[in-house]
Amino acid sequence: MRTDIVLPVVLGLSLGFATAAFAAETIAITMDKVAFAPTAVSARVGDTIEWRNADIVAHTATARDKSFDVNVLPNKTGKLVLKKAGKFDYYCRYHPTMTGTITVTE
């Protein structure tokens, strides 16, 4: 009787922890004064990158290997769900002086 009640609680708790540990995260990057901040980020497959453009001009986050190209208008955000592991160098097509890196692990 006693174990019947305790077991589900323990199970529920451990499940909760497991979910928290593997939950996908959202990583914020700001586009400000024609630069990505932070310049380099680390993430896991399944995480989301969210770029917020704080400048008065449009920017892009464009992968050198062409695997992604996110256009972000002033005062807007752009998102990308990371689907594969690797090191991705990216830049802004309109202002190629803006560069950044996303390192994705499994």
Partner: peptide, 13 residues
């Protein structure tokens, strides 16, 4: 200064 950063981007483009 902000303009200069934007225009340096234009030069690279």
């Amino acid at each position: 200064q902000t303009g200069l950063k934007i225009f340096q981007g234009h030069l690279a483009h």
